[in-house]
Amino acid sequence: MATSSSSSSSSGITERRGIPGAQFVEDVQTYLTQLGLDVNSALAFLQERLQQYKLVEMKLLAQQRDLQAKIPDIEKCLDVVGTLQDKKGTGEALITDFEVSEGIYSRARIEDADSVCLWLGANVMLEYSCEEAIALLQKNLDNAKASLEVLVADLQFLRDQVTITQVTIARVYNWDVHQRRMRQAAAAKDS
């Protein structure tokens, strides 16, 4: 954890893949002075930042759901191509049901398949040898798992920033309440 020389922050503001880091505020007065903001402006700024974090979180969670759905599909394709490769040359046919359209299946008998066709997306299908298909699918699986790991780390970083921002909002608000009470007590004492 980097330490700032000012007394308003105990950690330097960082960024992770475009997500700005939140500043933990130790001294609210110094924080407000450094930003040149009054309490209401600071609270509005912090609330806006919190909303931005929530929007990014929704986007990252959607990406996480997509990857979590994609990984089992890739693993299933790898299993199928591996099974086809294992049956090749044995003289044994593979009998399987495959989805023609959503909810519509057909039965197929596959004997000595030398190649497979893979959907690559955007209505593109290419034919690959079983070895090439396994290599491509394994690469895609590895990339998807690595992307998921990065995404999970991004979400953790983002959640930390949300927590820091929420704590800062509470600290600024509580500081303002304390300042008002002190002003009221001083005014009551003077009168």
Rank of each mutant, 00 (worst) to 15 (best):
G89S: 04
G89H: 07
V116E: 00
C130K: 14
G103W: 04
T83D: 09
K88P: 03
L120S: 08
A113Y: 03
I110N: 01
K70Y: 10
K76T: 11
V100F: 11
R109P: 00
D112G: 07
C77A: 12
V116Q: 01
K70G: 01
A122M: 10
C117P: 02
K88R: 10
V100S: 06
E131T: 15
F98G: 06
G103S: 10
Q68A: 12
G103L: 06
E132F: 01
L67K: 05
D97L: 10
C77I: 01
E99K: 01
Q64A: 05
A93L: 06
D66C: 00
L67Y: 08
L84R: 00
Q68I: 08
R65S: 13
I104Q: 14
K70N: 09
L126E: 14
E99T: 07
K76C: 11
C77L: 11
Q64Y: 05
D97G: 10
T90I: 07
Q64S: 09
E111C: 06
E111K: 15
Y128I: 02
L67I: 05
R107D: 00
D114L: 13
E92F: 03
D73W: 08
E102I: 08
D66Y: 02
K88V: 09
I74C: 02
S115W: 02
G121P: 07
L84K: 00
S115G: 06
N123W: 03
I110C: 04
E102A: 11
L67H: 05
Q85H: 10
T90P: 04
A133G: 04
W119V: 11
G121H: 06
A108N: 09
E131S: 13
S106P: 00
K70E: 15
R65N: 13
D73C: 01
L67F: 08
V116P: 00
S129P: 02
W119S: 10
E99Q: 12
D73V: 10
M125P: 00
L94Y: 11
T90H: 05
A69R: 12
K70Q: 13
C117N: 11
I74A: 02
E132R: 09
A69L: 12
G91L: 09
I95V: 14
A113E: 04
S106K: 15
L118D: 03
W119Q: 12
S129V: 04
L84C: 04
L78D: 05
E99M: 14
T90W: 08
N123L: 06
V81D: 00
G103E: 02
K76W: 08
E92D: 12
Q85R: 13
R107H: 08
G121V: 04
R107C: 02
A133N: 01
D86V: 15
D97T: 14
V116C: 03
D73Y: 08
C77G: 15
D97H: 12
V116W: 00
L126I: 09
E127C: 08
A113P: 01
P72F: 06
D79R: 13
S106E: 12
A122P: 00
D73Q: 15
V81G: 01
L126Y: 05
M125G: 03
D79W: 07
